[in-house]
Computed example of a mutant assay.
Amino acid sequence: MKIFELKCKAYLKTNIELKNSFDVLSKYLNYSIYQNEIYKNKDTSIKNYCFGNFYPTESDKIYKKNNVYEFVIRSIDEEFIDELEIAIIENMNNGFLLVLSAIKKEIDQFFIRELYTATPVIVSEKKDDTGRQIYWSLDYNGDIEILQNQLQKNLEKKLKLFFPENKAIIDNFIDEIEIKNLKPQSIYFKTIKNQKEKLVRLIGNKFKIVPKKDDLSQKLAFLSLGVGLGEKSSFGGGFCLGRGA
């Protein structure tokens, strides 16, 4: 298995608050992707990519106008990355940013000793009586087994879709998991409902994960680097960093 990465440098045309940065990047990438005829009519309900936020971070949580920041996009689909590399450079009409360069890197599977989530991992549960979506959190639920099962199910689904030759997985790929945040972490994005702009909040957590050492567990851990961990990777959820042996 391989994953493919674009390390991008972006010039900001305006100040962008941390709260709005995921929305800015996700809309920029989404627009760039769907300019390509290949992806306009393709089923992309299960995303084959993930991305990290701007860096370096800013102490006042505002990314500054006229500054250059980096962000990373990853996918398990090389054709997708190649098309996206062209599309994001050509996306000149965005009012927030201009991508100056995108450097492609190919990453072979390696043994992962630890996974760290750089952006919040989103795990949804059933909606409450009012129809509001409930997200897994230590305060609300606290059942680590439910969390691990949801993360496992999400990655297994993607593994079977993108690599159907792989065997079924019975045991959970996680050996140890540690919650790194004291308070729930959030990703915000804006949507239009009834002709009015609505701010949607996704609630997640950041983790340190020690994967198991067997081959299938390591495949799932490596896959998370390319497609994200948990849900909402196209909004910036679950972008991971891997530490090798």
Rank of each mutant, 00 (worst) to 15 (best):
D171K: 12
L225M: 13
L199P: 05
D175M: 09
Q218L: 11
E178A: 07
G204A: 04
I209V: 12
I174Q: 07
G204T: 06
K193C: 06
K157N: 01
L223D: 04
G228D: 10
F222G: 10
K193T: 07
K180L: 13
L223H: 07
L220M: 13
A168F: 12
L151A: 00
N172E: 08
N181Y: 12
I174S: 03
S233V: 01
V200Q: 09
K153Q: 01
I179L: 14
Q148R: 10
K193S: 13
L229Y: 14
T191F: 03
N154L: 02
E165T: 04
K160T: 03
K160M: 08
F222Y: 15
Q148L: 05
E165V: 02
N181C: 13
L182V: 14
I203S: 15
F235P: 00
K208N: 15
N172F: 04
E176V: 06
K213C: 11
L223S: 05
Q218Y: 12
E165L: 10
Q218K: 13
D171R: 13
A168L: 11
I179D: 12
S224K: 07
N194I: 02
L159Q: 03
F235Q: 08
Q218R: 10
S186W: 00
K213V: 12
L223V: 05
E231N: 06
L161F: 02
S186L: 04
N181G: 11
F162A: 01
K213H: 13
S233F: 04
L182P: 09
K212C: 06
L151E: 00
S217W: 04
Q185L: 10
N181T: 13
F207Y: 15
I170P: 00
K183E: 12
P211I: 06
L225K: 07
L199T: 14
P184K: 05
I187A: 05
